[in-house]
Amino acid sequence: MTKVYKLRFLVQSMSFAVLTYGGRLGLRLGHCLPCFTCPYVGSCSGHCYLMALQRSQWGFQISFAEAISVWGLRALGMFAGFFLLTIIFSKAWCGWICPFGTLQDWITFLRKKLGIRESQFSWTLRDRLKPIKYILLIFLIVIPILIGNAGLHSDFGLPFCQICPAKKLMPIFAGNFRYFAVDISNPITAFMSIVSLILTAFFFVGMFFKDRFFCLFCPLLALISLFEKFGFLGLEKKVDACTGCGNCQRVCPLNIREVHLEKKKKNVLTQDCILCLRCVESCPQAKVLSLKFFKNTIFSSSKDYISKRFIKKKRENLCN
């Protein structure tokens, strides 16, 4: 395990613990966190912003009349909180903090231990999946608007949360299996809960065979990436010195090709990037890839790093 990988593992585990169990200690981090800290986990210490976005008090489920009143201001305030948090840590929310992402990384860790290979998507399929998260994002905004203004049944409320696999999987860590139940109060809830069960099973299997499988579809990732150009963190590449060895492309949990293929632009922080820094770690060319905070380099690629972190001195330590 490499240094950054270890550090990330530590930060992820800590934030998992804080965000999932912090509520029991009275910790309240607000309702606008840009990560999947699920409000349905009873003991959570902060809420995922996607819920606020779909709600009546803080999001889009309001009528146009309400929107220009105090409610609108509250929604705006909530967004401001989200925006601020987003620009500070940018995609690091996904790669370093998000508890659902951490869960996926743990599952991947298990798969690698078992020596099972990751399944591969073709380049075309990978590109076709990209817009799905934006479509989900549009739906989770449009449906609450329709509830607020066009009289859509309120059981469609919080549409994304209803189908989100995190709502089923994360409460397990607080000992709660309740959300696996099918709600048969009316046809809408029955339909939604059956769809959500199917999706959860699909994603759970997917996560095992593919790194960060859910992130490929995550609407919150899409929302963060809309504001990433205001972010303080950046991933930069010295294109002239890149030999194109492809290490970055191969180790990327989201199979991003742009970092490898980019030959002109300096900025390689792309839509799907979760700033896990695997690419920077694995780049053998000095300072070709670097993580920047404003203009300051925090971490950059080097031969030394690879020599120290990827080469095992003794044979016995090799088989992981």
């Binding site: 690698k112 020596g115 099972i116 290979r117 990751e118 030999t243 194109g244 060895c245 492809g246 290490n247 492309q249 191969r250 180790v251 490898h260 695997r278 694995s282 053998p284 690879i306 990827f310 088989c319 992981n320």
Partner: peptide, 24 residues
């Protein structure tokens, strides 16, 4: 050239090898 692999499965190792000798 350097061979960095993330996947210790046979597929992962062979893919790393193939890319190291081809792409770089």
């Amino acid at each position: 050239a350097s061979v960095i692999y993330d996947e210790p499965s046979e597929y992962g190792l062979l893919k790393a090898l193939s890319e190291r000798y081809h792409l770089s």
